[in-house]
């Protein structure tokens, strides 16, 4: 998805993991993904650089669809669709 498409995307669930370091964002994502239904969209906010690599890999393993990243000033927004 393009950045503009992602910006307009309405997430069913937003996880704010800003301020936590590895493995915080990953654990937060894992926990929150249990609260949404298959096909719904989740957004993860993270200020940890590593998360940008970790979440796509995690999605691959868990078979969620990774939609992309929107960069903000001091953090990133990562989008995925639950498998």
């Amino acid at each position: 998805m393009t950045t503009d498409e992602l910006k307009n995307l309405k997430a069913n669930q937003t996880v704010d993991a800003r301020g936590t370091a590895c493995p915080g964002p990953l654990l937060a994502a894992k926990k929150a993904v249990g609260d949404i239904e298959s096909g719904e969209v989740m957004e993860i906010l993270s200020s940890d650089e590593g998360t940008k690599h970790d979440i796509p890999k995690w999605c691959q393993k868990m078979e969620h669809e990774f939609l992309g990243i929107v960069e903000e000033d001091s953090y990133s927004r990562l989008f995925l669709k639950k498998a």
């Binding site: 590895c22 493995p23 990953l26 654990l27 994502a29 894992k30 995690w58 393993k61 868990m62």
Partner: peptide, 11 residues
Amino acid sequence: MIIATGATAMD
């Protein structure tokens, strides 16, 4: 402990 907890996120 980081590897251990991270792995639980990977199911």
